[in-house]
Each structure stands twice: as C-alpha cells, then as structure tokens.
C-alpha cells in the first residue's frame, strides 16, 4: 500500500469512526461543590489534566489544570470548583463522526471535550487528541493485520503441503424451485473462497459464474449439486442436475435465447444471458446434456490469469 492510499484511509476513518468508539468512558468527574484545594489531589491521583463537573442535572462545566494553576497564582481563598470552572462547555455527541471532534479541537484549541448523549444530554465520556490518535492507530493496525493475513493465504497453505497433487473440495446441494434461497450456495462458496484469501477478481468470476449456474438449476432442473475443486493453479466448478436436459446446446449458448417462464423474467433472470455470462467468466467451459437425463456443466477458472484480467 502506498502512502497516498494510507492518507485516504485515515481520511476515510475519521468519517467512519464515531466519537464513542475512541472516547474514554470511565470518566473521573468532580462535583461543583468540591473545593479547589482538593482538585490537585484528584488530578494527581487519577493522572488526569482536567475533569468534567457534574451535578444532578448532568454536565455543569469542565475544570482543567490550567484553571487550577490560575487559581493558585492569584492566591485567592479556597472556593468551590463551580466558581472557577468553564461553565459554557463545548461538547460533542457520542454518535458524531470523529471528523467533527478533529475540527472542534482545531477550532477551540481545547485539550479535551466532554462527550454527551444526543438524546438525554447525559455525560457519556471524555475525548482528548491522544484518544483520537490512539483510536485511529488501533483501527489502522486491525485493518493492516486483516490485510496481511488475508493476502495469498491459500498459496501459503498449499506451499506447506507436500504432495504431487493438492485439491480442496466443496459440495453444495441446491433445492429446486426454491427461489427464496436461490444464490445461497454461491454466497457460501464466495465467502469460503474469500477466507482462503484468493484474489478478489478470481473470487468475483467464480461467484458470478456459479450464481448463474445455480439459478439455472433452480429455474430449469428442479435443483442439483455444485461441486467445487480448488487447486493451486485452477478452480473447477461442476454443476450437475438430473433435469430435463437441453435439446439444442448450440441454441442455448446463443445470447438472448431463452425458454424461461415469465415468473423467472420478473425476477430479473431468464433473458438468455446465463450461459453466456458463465462462459465470459470462465477460462474454459464444458457443457454436456442429454434430454431426459440431465445436464453437466464444468467451469474452469485459472487462478493465475484470474488475478490479472477483469471479465467486465
């Protein structure tokens, strides 16, 4: 990842992350009646440089170490915190995006903001610039870690196995006429290939081809099964049914040729593009069919080429 895209990532994150995700919620608060002379001990004990002042109605103000120093310097008599605190408090809502917090820090130059609930206006936490940086770094680290572990996982897995030939095998059973669940097998296959860490473009091609084939099983063949073989160089998706079979394969392969009933067309399928789409996603496709017996479709997708070429 180059530096440009990393900057974009941070820019993206400050919109994505909420104030509540990075704020500290175990806030040390003081009461307005607490004497100023006690403040030093509280700040030192809790290792903080300021605290929200809270009474029974919620947030009453905010007091910082600066206020304390000013009070010391002026050598005034002891008084309640309420007399020295900032009572016109700038706050942030817990559900605001982090960018609002960043802007407010810039605008006011404060060291901290109290975070309140948008609905009941109660104090939810406190946020400092340090919290923002820490939150961003943590999120970046998690994303980076995910990327690292995802990348080429299957390639490493295959390298660790000593054999003349290695393959992973998955089978999905597809029920016929079950339009509610149509696409579920392809969805599960796609998620599985994702976990294996294959290239996204390879996964996309396999997913689109399998999905079209799965729709065909449901529309025309009263179900069937999808068997997938993943090898280091190639993925084979075998789609088999014992349906009515295709009388004229050449015709079926023509774009736009369809025998689909209207209810299928209403769902956005059945326009005679399915086999064509599959063939576009595949490096090689093999279709065999016997009327009255069923149809066997083999889709070969190369792992190496797949990463380089986009089908569409």
């Amino acid at each position: 990842m180059n530096s440009d895209s990393r900057i974009t990532k941070v820019q993206e994150l400050v919109y994505e992350i909420r104030v509540r995700d990075v704020m500290k919620d175990d806030v040390v608060t003081v009461s307005p009646q607490t004497p100023m002379s006690k403040l030093q001990d509280i700040l030192r004990e809790k290792r903080i440089s300021g605290a929200p002042v809270v009474d029974q109605d919620g947030l009453a103000g905010i007091i910082s170490i600066d206020d304390f120093i000013r009070w010391l310097a002026e050598r005034e008599e002891d008084c309640p915190i309420s007399e020295k605190m900032t009572s016109d408090v700038q706050t942030l809502y817990a559900d605001e995006p982090l960018i609002h917090a960043v802007n407010k820090f810039e605008q006011y130059g404060f060291g901290r903001f109290a975070v309140i609930d948008r609905q009941d206006k109660r104090l939810r936490g406190i946020i400092t610039k340090g919290d923002i940086i820490e939150g961003l770094l943590k999120k970046l680290e998690i994303d980076y870690h995910k990327e690292e572990t995802q990348n080429e996982r299957i390639q490493r897995f295959f390298e660790d196995i000593y054999a003349d030939r290695i393959a992973l095998f998955f089978q999905y059973n597809v029920a016929g006429q079950d339009f509610k669940r149509a696409g579920e097998s392809s969805s599960r296959l796609k998620a599985t290939l994702g976990r294996l860490g294959l290239h996204p473009q390879v996964i996309r091609r396999v997913a689109i081809a399998t999905y079209e084939a799965e729709m065909n099983l449901i529309i025309y063949a009263d179900g069937g099964r999808i068997r997938v073989r993943v090898e280091p160089h190639q993925i084979l998706v075998k789609v088999e049914d014992s349906g009515p079979g295709i009388p004229d394969i050449e015709k079926a392969l023509q774009p736009g040729y369809s025998t689909a009933p209207d209810w299928v067309r209403e769902l956005g399928f059945g326009a005679g593009m399915g086999l064509n789409n599959i063939s576009n996603c595949a490096d090689r496709m093999n279709l065999r069919s016997t009327v009255g017996k069923g149809t066997h479709l083999s889709i070969y997708i190369s792992v190496e080429n797949g990463a380089k070429s986009e089908t569409n």
Binding site: F179, P200, R204, L267, G268, F269, G270, N280, N312
Partner: peptide
C-alpha cells in the same frame, strides 16, 4: 435485468434498479 448486471457491471458500481426482490 440481473443477468445484464452480472455481465457488465464492474465492482465499485452503484446499481440503479426498479426490481426489489432479494435476488
């Protein structure tokens, strides 16, 4: 037409459609 979407829409696209079914 979902088959058309599958054949020519690229990743990173927004899909505008009048169909509302789960497919």
């Amino acid at each position: 037409l979902m088959s058309d979407v599958l054949s020519f829409a690229k990743s990173e696209s927004l899909l505008l459609t009048g169909l509302t079914n789960p497919q």
